[in-house]
Design a protein around this nucleic acid. Structure first.
Lengths: 205, 205
DNA sequence: CCCGCGACCGACCAGGCGTCCGGTAAACAG
DNA sequence: CTGTTTACCGGACGCCTGGTCGGTCGCGGG
């Protein structure tokens, strides 16, 4: 019966995009369904037709957002050869001109803030972290197989690297006046090199 | 006129404590003035007598909370002798049995989440960071003067260390299933040792 | 031509919120 | 004793929100 079979998918995407935009602007709590509907060129009723509750919409929105960012990050990592350079190569996380970055961090903070009390959001956050950990673990394993890193447990290391990234990125984003991009790049380079130093086989620059 | 001159101070503290408790339980957005008043054994009107608006109350509450935590951390650092041990010594940040910790992190996440859009909260966050940076900088300077660390710029290093702490603590708190206390302690020890390694003069353990 | 149905609309509702305000009782001052 | 100020009460007000629901429209089938 639907005139276009993919209509539902299109509309959902349209709504989720609008939701992400609105949440990013107003914040998780202050983003209203009416506003999201408007941003999606739709009425409240139309929105309700696709997402019964605010919670449902927001969870899907966060999931979609993380998926999108992660796809992008993975693409970027694929373009680098050397495993160590890969570990150090997520510079786009500190690009204030990048729209994904600009509205991505507030979204992440919102998710963390909710996750502090809400178990469902906690798994959302965990999933997000796990994606990163998988990616970083793969890079580490790659390096071990290539004989660049001596044997180490990839997962805890990946988790540490990922946490360091997030810590530094948080400072850079929220207090840029005192945490320049240069500071951020240098700090995470040094921290990650420091973490990996014991496992780097000595024929590097 | 007031029966007890210090009454105002007492009441404000009482309200702020109640506010912190409530915010920590319910979250920044969902904590209501009525609830806070109740938690402070007071009516809504009584609360309004001391804090005109919710915003005003919350800002003071956050400030007070940060002050309190920081005082405590500084006390703990003062009990350690060796500068390097001091840098590595904030283990109480990863004590899940500590009430300050348990409700401190959600509060911090809330503040960050709001700070993502609200400049006033951003300076609140900055102030908090600066306190840490000051403390860590002092420790680094101490180490330089004692001849344990070779000359380095204390502030950027302090900011890096502090960011690493926060990154790892965040993971530990929000996804403890995959980020044990042991992982957290080991990770931040390694990361900070890695950051400081180039500046440690070789007569340590 | 009409029927049914899915997409979508927008007015509406119940409840919750921060803030305001009229009131009260106690503690002084004169 | 009276007037005034302070600390506090708790209901009222006005606004806003998420969710609902009756209704419209256009299309495809019969």
């Amino acid at each position: 019966m639907p005139p276009i079979p993919e209509l539902e998918e299109i509309r959902r995407k349209q709504i989720i995009d609008a939701a992400l935009l609105t949440i990013s602007n107003k914040g998780y709590a202050k983003a209203t369904m009416a506003e999201i509907a408007q941003a999606a060129n739709m009425s409240k009723g139309g929105l309700a037709h696709y997402f019964k509750t605010k919670r449902e919409l927001f969870q899907e929105a966060f999931t979609e957002f993380y998926r999108m960012i992660f796809e992008r990050v993975e693409r970027e990592a694929a373009e680098i050869e050397d495993p160590m350079d890969k570990l150090l190569g997520f510079e786009s996380l500190f690009d204030a001109g990048d729209p994904d970055v600009v509205w991505g961090y507030p979204l992440l903070f919102d998710c963390m803030s909710v996750a502090g009390r809400d178990p469902e959001y906690r798994v959302l956050f965990s999933d997000w972290v796990d994606k990163w950990v998988d990616l970083l673990s793969r890079i580490i394993r790659e390096g071990m197989e290539a004989g660049i890193f001596s044997p180490l447990k990839p997962e805890p290391m990946a988790r540490a690297i990922s946490a360091v990234y997030q810590g530094i990125a948080t400072r850079w984003f929220l207090a840029r006046k005192d945490h320049s991009r240069d500071w951020a790049l240098e700090s995470y380079h040094n921290a990650i090199r420091g973490l990996m130093a014991p496992y780097i086989i000595a024929n590097h620059t």
